[in-house]
Amino acid sequence: MTGIKHHLNDALLMAYSAGTLPEAFSLVVATHISMCDDCRAALAAHDAVGGALLEDTAEVELAPEALDKCLAAIQALPPKGPIKLPKSMTNGSAPRSSVFPSPLAEYVKGDVEDVNWRSVGLGVRQAILPTSKEASVRLLYIPAGAEVPDHGHHGTELTLVLQGAFRDEFDRFGPGDIEVADPNVEHTPVAEAGEACICLAATDAPLKFRSILPKIAQPFLRI
């Protein structure tokens, strides 16, 4: 996808490459990389650092019989069948147009029309996706022109735009753009006029809403 202006930073790429991000964040990172060739290339470079470290690390010997055990294990594997091509390349028909890249589609078990939306008021809808508890990730549907209440962050928040666009005090975020907000950031994202904005948002701590109502609503809505 071209025209992406806001990318993953080095800290996120390194943590994803090292395998230390919570699952919810990994989902947002993997979804952005699926949409962004620049970050895909940057990830390859971070993986290469991992490879160089592996090459350079001091060896720890295995048991003397380890190689023989492993050779026996691979000999016992069933013979390889023909290599499977991705479905979209084998069924001949053009892939249906989809909003969700494959890592996200796996969590939703489908595309936009399959999301189990729940209203959170003022036309905004969300769907929390199942991940490990360290952090949470949700899809947000914000009607054109609507705003997400003004809030700060206790932890890190990643917001990836899948469709439409939003603006906040800092910039405009369109399809494929990712906003990384840390505890110092307070903002009020507003969906642009025209198309509803669909985002994938992950947080490792509850959001801090400034107005009274969302503060009461927050525990109920699990925002």
Partner: peptide, 18 residues
């Protein structure tokens, strides 16, 4: 290692078309 120590999924980017 993620499987073994964290016991959670690691979402992977979409494969590039061949």
């Amino acid at each position: 290692r993620i499987d073994m120590l964290r016991k959670e999924r690691r979402p992977e980017p979409e494969e590039l078309p061949w």
